[in-house]
């Protein structure tokens, strides 16, 4: 941590974004080429190789209670985590931005509903609702992505509502509006670009939140298909082997934290750049 160095030069400060993006690049490469890097089939049970410590018997990160290779399972879990979080975040930002723009511009029933939902969403236990919804709709990629995306879009509409309303008051927008530019073109040409910095910051932090939510859900045994090698599921399994296989907890825990911090770094980094102009 470089935090102890007193006045840090601006170049070092801005580096949060670079470090975050570099780390993200590594994670994405690991996810893309995971099946090629993985030493074994992540589901391959080998009862003679149960709970091997890291590096033992050709298993770089050891094995789990069924002798499955931990590195291979974690690589598979990384693909799931990134895919779910990316899709859920993309869904939330799309729905939240669209509805936020409608809410900022129009006075209709939909707009007032959007404003109402947005203002109430903070005092709403979305995680509990997500758990209940997935319990009803069943496990699987689509179910998790739709649920997480559709219960969290107010995060984005909140910011869009606030910022779009102020952009809409600016003179060039008023001018464009008077020249009878179509509503959709007005939003896309003049309003949306002004929202990009805030949305980018929010996107990164929301991605981190979705990673946490997804891994918490699969930790609880909700969402991911039964037996899938998700980080949450691996962490849940580890609870029975805290004494005999502590690496089953520590390795995936470190990975989850590293991935979440990666996105926090990116979010902070973008925010610093935006603030610096």
């Amino acid at each position: 941590m470089t935090a102890a160095v007193s006045p840090r030069p601006a170049a070092l400060r801005a580096d949060r974004l670079t470090v975050g993006l570099a780390a993200l690049g590594v994670f994405v490469l690991l996810a893309l080429f995971g099946p090629m890097i993985a030493p074994r089939d992540p589901q391959l049970v080998d009862l003679d190789a149960r709970l091997l410590a890291p590096l033992a018997g050709g298993h770089p990160l050891g094995t789990d209670q069924l002798g499955r290779d931990l590195l291979s399972r974690l690589l598979e879990g990384l693909r799931w985590s990134l895919a779910v979080s990316a899709s859920a975040t993309a869904l939330a930002v799309t729905v939240g931005t669209t509805l936020g723009l409608i809410g900022a511009r129009s006075t209709g029933l939909v707009a007032s509903a959007v404003r109402q939902i947005t203002s109430l969403a903070q005092s709403f236990p979305v995680f509990v609702l997500a758990v209940s919804i997935i319990a009803i709709t069943g496990n699987g990629f689509t179910s998790v992505v739709l649920t997480l995306g559709l219960v969290t879009w107010p995060v984005f509409s909140r910011v869009v509502l606030a910022e779009a309303s102020s952009i809409l008051q600016r003179e060039y927008v008023l001018a464009a509006s008077m020249m009878q530019m179509s509503e959709v073109r007005l939003m896309l040409r003049h309003v949306l670009p002004g929202l990009v910095p805030s949305l980018a910051v929010l996107f990164a932090f929301h991605f981190a939140d979705m990673l946490i939510a997804e891994s918490a859900l699969s930790f609880l045994g909700i969402g991911a298909p039964l037996g899938a090698s998700t980080w949450g599921a691996i962490l849940n399994d580890s609870r029975a082997y805290l004494l005999t296989g502590p690496w089953l907890l520590l390795v995936p825990a470190m990975l989850v934290v590293a991935l979440v911090i990666t996105f926090n770094l990116i979010g902070d980094g973008i925010r610093q750049r935006v603030a610096a102009g």
């Binding site: 935090a3 918490a216 934290v257």
Partner: peptide
Amino acid sequence: RLVRGGIFVLQGFPGFVTALLLV
């Protein structure tokens, strides 16, 4: 500054991971 760095790292810990590590 050190504490702030520590808090930044702590914010990266999902609650269930912290709970498991505490146990």
